[in-house]
Design a protein around this nucleic acid. Structure first.
Lengths: 133, 133
DNA sequence: GTATATTCCTACTATCCAGATAGGGATATG
DNA sequence: CATATCCCTATCTGGATAGTAGGAATATAC
């Protein structure tokens, strides 16, 4: 229950690898081989990380990816969301006013609380916590 | 991300229905029709709830299901676990000593922390909170 | 300007699992 | 015996995840 996708776990390893690399940079192929991640699959992951503004990229020879910012400033939530979208135990958590039960719907309040608990935890922890301690 | 299965949501509605019923009891067919849950599918859900000791059952005419205990004593965690097992962001959270990284594996500590945050929230809330407020 | 190394884009396949359905067996009542 | 209920097993289906394939765009080096 509540298991994290392989994609997200790969993404964390990839970010950790970047964090440990020279100038926080590396090529996708490098990361794939060093971390044992399927190379072609990782390409899609790096693309998502870029879309979310966590890394920047340069094409061509001597190209690659570079982390934007420092590990202690990158929340785990931002990585998780970059992969699998926002935490949403049930669909109605962010459906304002569409709940047939109205705004006082107790189950909805309960799920919103769960989302907050998860978001808080993920927001409080950074890439640095997970890699360097 | 981290979405809750339809099964779990059905289970909560079913338990809520039992809680509101005469003597905390009802038949599977009753619940299905009242809550708009596919009858045959609900049977499997009730079976799981029974296996987890949340309800008891009686077969034959005048049979049905009855909640064991009171709504304020039934944690949401117990319902969630009855449906989809324990909260386990990654498999290694409860794999003692099998982590190739040893016990100090930081990512593992991170996921264990997440599990605890989720478990705590679900444990703190009861069926009563979600149904009666 | 050609070769090469990289990111980037699109499409495809395979596998798994949740959700749901179907049919009937076991058991209790009357 | 008839009926109502829980219970068990098998099956189907759609969508998501994980992974693969092929190549286009782009930057560098010689």
């Amino acid at each position: 229950m509540f298991s994290v996708s392989a994609r997200t776990q790969y993404a964390i390893r990839a970010m950790a690898h970047l964090a440990g690399g020279e100038g926080h940079g590396a090529t996708s192929a490098e990361i794939a081989s060093a971390e044992g991640i399927p190379a072609k699959y990782l390409e899609g992951i790096m693309s998502r990380l870029k879309l979310s503004g966590l890394v920047e990229s340069e094409r061509g020879k001597h190209g690659g990816y570079r982390m934007i910012g420092e590990p202690e400033d990158i929340s785990m939530l931002s990585i998780v969301e970059a992969m699998d979208g926002s935490v949403k135990p049930v669909n109605c958590v962010d459906a304002v006013g569409t709940c047939s039960q109205g705004n006082g719907c107790l189950p909805r309040q309960f799920w919103i609380g769960l989302k907050k608990a998860i978001d808080n935890y993920l927001e409080e922890h950074t890439l640095k916590d997970v890699t360097e301690g």
